[in-house]
Design a protein around this nucleic acid. Sequence first.
DNA 1: CTCTTGTGCGGGAACGTTCCCGCATCAATA
DNA 2: TATTGATGCGGGAACGTTCCCGCACAAGAG
Lengths: 385, 385
Amino acid sequence: MDGGAGDWQHQRMTETPPRRDHGVPAAVPRVRLVDVAREAGLSKTTVSAALNGTGRLSPAVRERAREVARRLGYRPNPTARLLRAGHARLIGYAVGEYPTGPGSYMDSPYFTQLTSAIATTALRHGYALVLLPTGSSPDEWADLPLDAAIVADPLADDPLVEGFIAARIPLSSDRSVEGRSGTHWVDVDAEAAVREVLDHLRAQGARRIAVVAPDTPTSFYTAALDAYRRWCAEQGATPLVTLSTRPGNGPAVEAVERSLTTPDRPDALFMLTEANPPLVLDAARRLGLSVPADLLLVCASEDTSAAHADPPVTTLSLQPVSVAEKGVELLVAALESGSLEPTGALVRTRLEIRTSSERGGEPAGGAALRRRGRQEAEYTSAPPT
Amino acid sequence: MDGGAGDWQHQRMTETPPRRDHGVPAAVPRVRLVDVAREAGLSKTTVSAALNGTGRLSPAVRERAREVARRLGYRPNPTARLLRAGHARLIGYAVGEYPTGPGSYMDSPYFTQLTSAIATTALRHGYALVLLPTGSSPDEWADLPLDAAIVADPLADDPLVEGFIAARIPLSSDRSVEGRSGTHWVDVDAEAAVREVLDHLRAQGARRIAVVAPDTPTSFYTAALDAYRRWCAEQGATPLVTLSTRPGNGPAVEAVERSLTTPDRPDALFMLTEANPPLVLDAARRLGLSVPADLLLVCASEDTSAAHADPPVTTLSLQPVSVAEKGVELLVAALESGSLEPTGALVRTRLEIRTSSERGGEPAGGAALRRRGRQEAEYTSAPPT
DNA sequence: CTCTTGTGCGGGAACGTTCCCGCATCAATA
DNA sequence: TATTGATGCGGGAACGTTCCCGCACAAGAG
């Protein structure tokens, strides 16, 4: 288990290390600070100061130390530095809920952008990101010198979250950790987001707004569905909810089809489940519905294909980049100040209104087909509301 | 810069550490092995052995040590363990070429799956993955205790690659590192992949096969274009290449439109640029082309929406999961054996043939429309070849 | 010429572990 | 009763760095 490296642990007890080069792997020992010092005829203290630009050293000595270090190809041992420094500038990152592998939620543009933005922001603050297995037990990361951790979309009472808190590792996550010592939360304002979408659809004339949402206990989705039901109650409308049970485009499209084939068909669809917008349009088209003429469509999605779809699809962006930046910033601020004070922030979503949710908008394929002088009655003559 | 932690460095020189709790951050010193030992009336050696399950200890002592450790909330310092162990079980991961941020190549399903699979595979082998900034200089990762590194799609003479090699950090990348000491390469067989696609399209009756490829110096794309040109030369066909200059769906779709509006229109399209397949279908439809009747389509893409598009789109998968697994396995094998011997592996791509590239296949919207008894002549009566 | 002040460099402790030994103690054997 | 061997535990070195301090020596002030 310790294979190889452990075997020559105690070989360097003498002053002149026995650099044996028999043995096949020829594991050449790294050149250390003392090696440079001996070669330069200086002490390790002096060499250390020379390389780090600290201490009181004559220019001549400083340059000599540097030259020798360069010549020997010296690279300081990061682990030893970390042990002295007391921190590793490493942040663990885990996604709470979802199993990995192709076809999982992890593949969605939301998580891609979130992960990417967290990494970028952390690095800008001098921290590197370590990818942790989802749903891992503490012993999987106990050997890692983590200064802090970020858990995206944790389960309720997530063991990961509990593990980090128990280990007194500062944590950034969603509102479920609110108020606990050493934790920080960032969340999107689901209530405001949902109201903005629903109000927009209603303003465009929608009367029966259906929602397709994933069947997960993630806080955003439960909060969003709650907000939707409240809004419906206020408006005196009956909630039309269809749940997509598994991740991926297939189940999402299937849920869309179920939602749109109810006896009393909706005239607007709010896709909370993240799906590829063009596929949602395809589904509507297959059912003989023209968007936006017969059906207004808003997708909660970060997929850039929404803007290029035909017609362009209105999207609700959950602003993963903002969430990432805020989460990292709260964490780094607490880390630098050494404070255990819990903090939090709410991020506003962004509704990008495009043709798919505008009553006066172009129908699917309309622009191109009309331009080429083709008949498009098949699409615009779908059953009216 | 060292802020906070460095200030109480030399405070613990006495046997009884002065746990001062004045000062606002109240940075409570971590409980160390010696603290547990003193509390239990044992030596640190004994406690260490007790917790690690090593050494010769009476059950009573072992249990006592464990109990005290539990009671005090002792957690071993990972950095100190690493310093002893000589390795951190950390692998750095960087994407060579592409700038980050939304709209970059990094957002493509290929990289999502590659990254995810590398992380998963590494973790299965006991290594954690550290996300590195793209195009970073050595001093960005010099402080990280990396045992190895993986660079996906490096540039020619990538500074990142050169940095890792100079630092003698074992590296896994593509064929550009082939043969250099401590390096390992994994690549897809671009030649075989392209020939398989082209032969398939030809067998389906295609005579003018166009290619849309990204304008990047990534080895796969240059190799693929070379293979395409060779194949064309063999077949006596003229190569029809359109380059997409920038990443993202927009430029890709635009390239498709350019490719399909040439005076002598192609009867098959091989999308090497990774784009959302439904958007490519949209583009064809806007130009009045029915897939597969007027245009056979194959997309090099990992996007799951291809299978659910209308019609389902034939895809060439670059097998990022296989690439990831092979790359990590070569690296881990070298790490465990301590060998510097360069190794490499070639991964076969996978052609998933669907309706979009089959001459007898269903046209766009066909299946669903026919099912609902609707007229579909508009699409099947498009200009024949 | 002595006292101070400053400069240049090195000794050695400390970060918190793990692990090689050595030293007791005790049972079993000669 | 002496000798061996096993068992149980602790001392202390080592991993490779950084940094506090002390010491020697030179220069300027009184």
